[in-house]
C-alpha cells in the first residue's frame, strides 16, 4: 500500500513511520497542503492520504477541497488535533472518508485505514 502522510510537524511523520516500521507499506511525505496536492499530481497509485488540518500555505481542509474539486477519489483520512464535532462534520462534507483526532494510537490508525479501504472495495 502507498500512503501519503501530510503534516507540518516532523515528529508526526516520525511517529507514523514507527507505526508502519514492521510493514511492507510505502510512505510518502508532504509537509503542507500544496505539497500533498503536488505529490498526488506526480505519483501514481496512492492508496490513501493522511491529512493534517492546520498547516502553513495550504491547510489540510483546503487541500481536501482542491483534491476533491479536481476529481481525485483517493481515500482521505484527516488526522488532526481539531476535535470539534463541527470540524469533523465539515471535513466529512468536503469529502474526507474518515477523521482521526490526535492523539491517536496505532490501533486507531490501522482500523480507520482498514475502514476506508474496505469501503472502497465494497
Amino acid at each position: 500500500m502507498k500512503i501519503l502522510v501530510t503534516d507540518d510537524s516532523k515528529s508526526v511523520h516520525g511517529f507514523i513511520e514507527a507505526m508502519f516500521a514492521e510493514t511492507e507499506h510505502t510512505l510518502l511525505h508532504a509537509y503542507d497542503g500544496q505539497q500533498a496536492i503536488d505529490t498526488v499530481a506526480g505519483e501514481q497509485n496512492i492508496d490513501v492520504i493522511l491529512l493534517d488540518w492546520e498547516m502553513p500555505n495550504v491547510t489540510g481542509v483546503e487541500a481536501l477541497k482542491k483534491l476533491r474539486d479536481g476529481g481525485s477519489e483517493i481515500p482521505i483520512v484527516m488526522v488532526t488535533s481539531k476535535n470539534n464535532v463541527k470540524d469533523i462534520s465539515e471535513a466529512l462534507t468536503f469529502g474526507a472518508d474518515e477523521y482521526i483526532m490526535k492523539p491517536f494510537t496505532k490501533d486507531i490508525l490501522f482500523e480507520k485505514l482498514e475502514m476506508v479501504l474496505e469501503r472502497k472495495v465494497a
Binding site: 476535535n83 464535532v85 469533523i88 462534520s89 474526507a96 483526532m101 491517536f104 475502514m115
Partner: peptide, 26 residues
C-alpha cells in the same frame, strides 16, 4: 469513540461534552 467507530456514526449518534480538564480531547 475512535476504536472501530466510523466518523460519520460519531457525528450522527454522539453529542460532544464540553471540555472539563487538561486531558487531551473531550
Amino acid at each position: 469513540v475512535q476504536r472501530g467507530l466510523g466518523s460519520a456514526n460519531l457525528v450522527k449518534y454522539f453529542n460532544q461534552k464540553p471540555k472539563v480538564d487538561d486531558r487531551p480531547g473531550t
